[in-house]
Nucleic acid binder design. Structure first.
Lengths: 205, 205, 205, 205
DNA sequence: AATGAATGAGCCTTCATTCAT
DNA sequence: AATGAATGAAGGCTCATTCAT
């Protein structure tokens, strides 16, 4: 009989948000439970009530992060019409002012580093990539259906596109002094357009 | 008058190798000085004799790693003739049997994650990327000189090529179940060839 | 809502007492945090909960010690009537059976030695001496007011008296085989009485 | 067959000087063997050749220091004529420019603090004090012989005088902001003169 | 539901000492 | 005589986790 039935959801969201924030700020290896408690405005015991261990909490934080980012990608893609526009609809990845991005890159890089030595994490990553590939290959398949593209393996191509996005994004984030936002956007658009060019019906830019 | 004049160099190499190995195996955050001592076959104090602190040691390990990988890239590129072949000379990145690669990806991912919160590391990364870009843009410039390519910004393009390599490589390494070596090699070759296609004199691809 | 509201005060007192005891027993340089934990009946982490570091703890221990000793001096002085009796009211300094003294000399000597290289400690010492001088010069000033003494700089004289007490006390404590309690008490009484003699109205000594 | 017969003496002096210097600078508890090696211009092994252990070295350093200071006291006293002048011949204790004093107070305070927990050191201290007392009581006895003083226990008085010197000196050294050299010299002269006054024949300054 | 006091294992670092050369 | 590489014990501090209230 919880006083407020949604209390658990509220608290968990509060904690996840604190996790997101602190991990982004200090990095997984440097975040302590105390950091998270402080940021969440809860005590150690209070936090323990909702997450059995640091490990469980961190997994949830990353899960939450990956869900959120993917959600954004799907929503943004849904707002444009043509398949080509859809696969090119990710300039938001290079938006310095987007708070999700400020948190996203630190988390993604931390997450990947940990994944190397952790099967649980690797699986989350696998699923996430799977989602992106499904989203992108869906757009490509739609393009084939509509007759925009011909002769193209949607899944393999979607993987390549996704990898290009990520490769460019990491560079842009990690070394901004020599990788401007302009470079990043031109790069991914160019690379993806050129990749698809051989498979496009004339007149589609 | 040390018994062996090169003792310091030998020991440092021994320690760096141990660092490389243990970091790759367990991840930066999980490696202890004891792990490294044990692997290097030295005592705690012996190690301290050569590296003042864990941080100094780790920086040296990463420096060593970056040097080594870049060396390999430069050497491999030097073995092929045409500029196009040169920029495509990186299939060794996708060689599972290459011990440098088995160590390289864990290290690279750890390194990037730490760099987010560490200016020293970020600078090492910046320099390393600079080296790659110089190497690749050199090949592109040579291509322009030779007349293979026209109308192409060597540096910006080199950055894009390098980012594509890295994006594809990380996918390949992190999620091999759905990113085969075949996919990786096809992906990068395709993406880079297509990227350069508009700038190539007829008959080259 | 701690179980006992004064828990923090209790624990801190417990820890300070353990610090006092162990430092007196083994000396600052030889006391480990484990020693103090064991003596205080707390774990390492428990102690860390109340004192951030060994240094902070030691500073508090000394502060506590100095407060306690000064308190005793003030109280003892308050129990006698005449100004001369007041400035001579410190035979308790030479009481072997006083547990505060058993702890006090080891601490004082350790403290002074550390102060030489530590400004924080030096300031504590400065303040403590300031307190004694104020106390003693107050008594002297009262003596002047009452007409017991004439023609005497209360502060400079108080400093001299205080220095004599300490000089005699250290000898007495450090080399008891040749500095008996009798010698100590006779010495300080004699030295101080003689020092004041020229400034005393007839009939007082 | 040492190459130079006096080499051992030279090296030992070199090491002791380094010990004196480093202990005075950093304090016993903070001086490392490396500090001393560096200051002495010798290697660890070289130092070990002459002093079995840190403890042995430190004991010798203190011995050396005590000898040196006492020597100075005796020499200075020998330069004045009357017994009263002799017992008052210690203003050099309050000479900030005297390098022996700059080293002396840190060492003395460190030494006394350690002595509390160390019988070897305590014995050295005991002997040193014994020397001073002998020196001072000798002067007093001479005064009695000469007829300058009457009715005075030379040894007990010498102890008191010595304790006054030390008490004033420690204050002067430890808290110079409120204990000027002027105060120190006036204090000890006054206190000692007054102490002796009742025992002095008329007309002896 | 929530607090925060308490635990104790683990880690990096320091440093006196040893010893082969 | 002298070097300095190597050892390894010891210590202070951090921090995830537990638990009584």
């Amino acid at each position: 009989m919880p006083p407020i039935p949604e209390l658990e959801a509220i608290r968990k969201a509060q904690i996840l948000e604190a996790g997101l924030k602190t991990i982004a700020e200090r990095g997984c290896a440097n975040v302590t439970m105390d950091d998270i408690c402080r940021t969440a405005g809860l005590s150690k015991g209070g936090l323990a009530h909702y997450y059995r261990s640091k490990y469980e909490l961190f997994k949830s934080v990353f899960q939450e992060f990956f869900d959120r980012i993917f959600q954004r990608g799907r929503d943004t893609m849904a707002r444009v019409d043509t398949p080509l526009e859809k696969v090119l609809s990710f300039d938001w990845l290079y938006d310095v002012d987007n708070p999700d991005m400020a948190v996203g890159y630190p988390l993604l890089l931390d997450f990947m580093a940990i994944s190397v030595h952790n099967a649980d994490y690797r699986e989350i990553f696998h699923d996430w990539i799977g989602n992106w590939v499904t989203l992108l290959s869906g757009a490509l398949a739609e393009g084939i259906d509509r007759g925009d593209f011909t002769d193209l393996d949607p899944v393999a191509t979607a993987r390549t596109i996704s990898a290009i996005y990520q490769g460019v994004a990491i560079r842009w984030y990690m070394d901004p002094s020599t990788h401007s936002t302009e470079w990043a956007i031109t790069s991914f658009q160019n690379a993806i357009r050129r990749l698809l060019a051989p498979h496009m019906k004339t007149g589609t830019p």
